[in-house]
Amino acid sequence: MATHRTGYGPLWGTVRIVVGILVVVWSLAPIYWGAVIAFASVADIRRSPAALLPQSIELGNFGRLLGPGSATQGVFLSALGSSVIQALGTTVLTLAVALPAAYAFARLRFAGSRLLLTVITITLAVPVYLVLIPLFQLATATGQINTQQGVILVLTSAALPLAIWILRSHIVTLPEDLEAAARLDGAGTFRVLGSIIGPLVAPGLVAAAVVTFLASWGAFLIPLVYANSSGTEPLTVLIPTFANKFSSDYGLQSAAGLVAVLPPVLLVVLLQKYLLSGLLKGATK
């Protein structure tokens, strides 16, 4: 026990357990319930009152979603593909554009650097809906609407400021001596970026990549407007459209939802350390 905790009363142990249970239930209940519905039979989805524990575990909903000959197989697989293309494309493009900029802002003092950094920072606060219609006009005028590259560009513009911030914050903390040594050995800027800064800033790159990937994987309003055709819509746009005659089709929504949360959940579980540092850098700097 750390010293500063000596002030706690005897109740603390109980409180700690109760809070722990509440935190876990609150965080996991929607995911748990989504999984219960995804694996439930049609009758059990409609069961009233609902039973807390799964009453049936079957793959019927997944069969309806993507089984051979299912009505939604085509659109679902296409949306899954679009989600992957858009999220990965955005991540790669964002990092490729953000890293040199972040390096310049962290290490170089050049005319207008402060102004440019300020402008880019301010765009962090520009809400998507402010640019939605003009970008829609641009995209329709240039034939970029309902194309993967079009939506990737828009997603990149949304993700870029945060990625630059995260990377810059990492680069600032790196010791300059290594770079200086490399330069004395005659290395140029791009070699410095590639061989010295690159590896050192890897945790920052991972953090920026994870944050960008999650943001673009989860984006909704942007693809709703720029990628809403059957060939380009991602999972986030497709899933809410699953419906039956009187209401949403819970079976399809939950089954597709589980597939859609798998990549982000795996990223969080596997790369939590980087994600947290990325979040902190993004939120506090």
């Binding site: 995911i31 989860g218 999972l235 949360v261």
Partner: peptide
């Protein structure tokens, strides 16, 4: 975990 889940999902 909840943070990583897409808003629509």
């Amino acid at each position: 975990l909840p943070w990583s889940i897409p808003g629509t999902v």
